[in-house]
Write a protein that binds this DNA or RNA. Structure first.
Lengths: 231, 231
DNA sequence: GCAAATAATACGTTATCCATAATTATGAAT
DNA sequence: ATTCATAATTATGGATAACGTATTATTTGC
């Protein structure tokens, strides 16, 4: 088949990897799902070759697991994995805040503050989605200011894995005010040009996120048990 | 071509990836080298398909860089990269020592001490190779005791990248005694069951390694300049 | 000697085929 | 009916050949 429509800026396997990533993150392909190579190739209208290359890439990222001769499955993350990853992320994002605080110029702080202002705004009107987006933007900006390629790489790799959990985007549920308070502490560290303080505040912010997630899981497990008893 | 000789325990692309890794680590394929897909496929007696898959995996690990439409090159690591990676590694291996110290049982400490005894022995007789191997074993064991899959993963990924630098295995050159002293400090932290102390000692040990490497580079650069002037 | 045109090279992709391992379905025997 | 062995099915891992195209190298023309 000929595809003159493709301008081929980026390789096809990369586009496919990205499409799959999004489907995994959105839980259209939940953890444990078997990925049918042939069916997917037909679905995407491509050959198996670039698809298989894409799957290798996703496997290296930890998003899928390739079982020899048994195919490809979306990776399942356990509670233990979360207990291991969050403290790691806390340390790494803390370090990121530390370096960002050291390297930030006055104008960078202004930019960071303007993003923080969005957090304040969305929290005030209770806009969870807006808060979530601004939160992401805040963390992204801190990492940009840290300007450390390898630190960024490691953080992004782990974040991808975290996005495998469905509740990730819901971790703000019921703790908007607490998250905001934590962000104020981070921002205060930056404004005081106190890198160690920014680091600790960011670190604690991440650990707090883990606790919120644990509570959500616990609640869900309880509800699951209740509905199971009812049935 | 048919290959009935292959028993195919692990996938071919994985074997190829491992072979390439070794060739990269040994600097038979030094940083910057172009990897000729077709020639390599012929050389290994395989088709391009699994070779390309292997290259995708290595690219995800950061060992090679895939330039669209221009092929595959062994990644080149800059001084700046080293300045970013070593503090990261120091933090991560420090954390590893922390967790290992917390989780280690009495028998684990005995095992660790027996490896440390090897370091003492090889340092005493000035056996650099033996010291190097025992050193690797020591770090490997600490990470095993930390028993943290994701921490291990991140550390191993970064270590692979560090192995791109030729001087990595020579970083002990002329600092055997210092490295030994640092290891004694780490061991002391473990024996005192003081996780924070083990963490800091391990952290400082890594940073010290970075400094030694920087001195080696500086010396080499000076020699390079001298021989260039002589020519 | 340099720019433009041309040829060679090799990457990205498709398509097809095949061997082998895994899974499922089938059928016989207890 | 259940168990077990066997056969049929399916999907993965890999090979091969072919092709368009972007890059690089070479030749040509001025």
């Amino acid at each position: 088949m000929n595809h003159p429509a493709r301008i081929a800026q980026t390789a096809l396997y990369q586009e496919v990897a990205e499409r799959l990533r999004q489907r995994i993150f959105s839980h259209e392909l939940p953890p444990g799902t078997w990925i049918d190579e042939q069916a997917l190739a037909v679905d995407y209208g491509i050959s198996r070759t670039p698809l298989r290359e894409a799957l290798k890439v996703l496997a290296a990222e930890g998003l899928v697991t390739l079982k020899p001769r048994r195919g490809c499955y979306v990776t399942e993350i356990s509670e233990r994995d979360l207990d291991e990853i969050f403290p790691l992320m806390a340390m790494l994002e803390g370090r990121s805040a530390f370096e960002a605080s050291q390297k930030a110029k006055a104008e960078d702080l202004i930019r960071l503050e303007s993003i923080h202002a969005l957090l304040e705004k969305y929290a005030a009107i209770g806009d969870k989605e807006g808060f979530f987006d601004a939160n992401q933007e805040f963390h992204r900006t801190v990492q940009e200011l840290a300007d450390n390629r390898w630190l960024l790489q490691v953080i992004q790799d782990l974040r991808k894995v975290l996005k495998l959990t469905r509740l990730h985007s819901l971790s703000l549920e019921g703790r908007l005010q607490q998250s905001l308070a934590e962000h104020r502490a981070i921002m205060a560290g930056f404004k005081a040009r106190d890198a160690a303080r920014a680091e600790k505040a960011m670190h604690d912010h991440l650990l707090s996120g883990r606790e919120a997630l644990a509570r959500l899981y616990a609640r869900e497990a309880a509800e699951g048990a209740r509905s199971a008893k009812a049935a």
